Simulated assay, not measured.
Amino acid sequence: MTGNGTNSWLVEHSAGTAVIDPGPDDAAHLRAIVAAARGPITHILLTHTHRDHLEGARPLAEMTGAPVCAYRHSACATFSPDIALDDGAPVATLTALHTPGHAADHLCFATGDGIVFTGDHIMGWSTTMVPPAPHGSVRLFLDSLDKVLDRDARLLLPAHGPPIPSPVLCIRGLIAHRLAREDSILAALPDEPATLDDILRRVYRAIRPALRRAAELNLLAHLEKLRDDGRAVHDHDTWRAVRDGTTA
């Protein structure tokens, strides 16, 4: 699900270089980061604590002495940041933006001149995976897209895929895609109770086995939003729609 790998971004500032998302624990990649940095590496910034972003952080910290900075409420039970960041916190000439949705502890990092490092919140090669609670949330994902949209960025630099030179067009497209998916799920949701597997077959009429688990998680995350919006009812292992003129 990581495409061609995890992008590590180096941001120069007056005291040295900050590294965003060192990626997996790959010795050659970490050496390349150190070699490319201008001046000392002063901060290691994590957009979130999924393995393909987190695992290289401690090895790089040991190589450089730089602190690992991440959202203060880590979603990884075995990790705590050296510097805990809140929404809006300044760090190494950047501003941390709490952008939950793909992950509860997701951060984007914004420069002062219109660049946003988007991690997995907005990717350059695909739409991002939004899992169900407690790890993710479609509602929070949409709210976080609005937060980045409000930055009026001129360039998005994601953790996967190429740079995104048209942020407004991209973000509005992602919002439209999610809302269209929500509409299609609601249209497929029966009025009588149905299992998640039944609904999955209605929504995804043909799906490769390798993508089935991701589709289940995506569907469940959307169903949770529909439930919270009062448009679906969850009862034990079944779901049903709430239409105009019906009651929950």
Rank of each mutant, 00 (worst) to 15 (best):
I199C: 08
E62V: 05
I83V: 15
T2Y: 11
T128D: 08
T127F: 09
I20H: 11
L54I: 03
R213P: 00
E62H: 07
N7G: 05
I185P: 07
P24W: 10
D87G: 03
P165M: 11
T128R: 01
L226E: 01
L196Y: 02
V138E: 04
P163H: 00
G88M: 08
L174C: 11
W125C: 14
A180S: 14
P131R: 01
G112S: 12
I115T: 15
T17I: 12
A159S: 15
H98D: 08
G114M: 11
G65Q: 02
D52S: 14
P40N: 07
L169Q: 14
V11N: 01
T246K: 11
H53K: 02
D229K: 13
R227A: 13
A18D: 07
V11K: 01
H135F: 14
T128A: 15
P40F: 04
D120Y: 00
F109N: 10
C76M: 09
A206D: 11
W239G: 08
H106R: 03
L169F: 05
H53T: 02
D146Y: 02
V116L: 09
G3C: 00
L60P: 07
S8Q: 04
G39A: 12
C170I: 05
S8E: 03
H50M: 08
A241D: 07
L156I: 10
L156P: 08
H234R: 15
I115L: 11
H13D: 05
L179W: 04
P158A: 06
G5S: 01
V91R: 04
K147T: 15
R38T: 14
C108Q: 00
V19S: 09
R202P: 04
V19F: 04
T118R: 04
G16P: 11
P162V: 08
A232F: 01
T247P: 01
I164S: 04
A57E: 11
G114A: 07
V116H: 06
R212V: 12
S126T: 12
G245Q: 08
N4V: 06
E62I: 02
R202G: 05
I83Q: 08
R205N: 04
C69K: 03
H73E: 13
G16L: 10
H135N: 09
P22C: 05
A75Q: 12
R72D: 03
A214L: 13
S184T: 12
R240V: 06
C76Y: 10
D191G: 15
T6G: 00
G124H: 00
L142R: 15
A32Q: 14
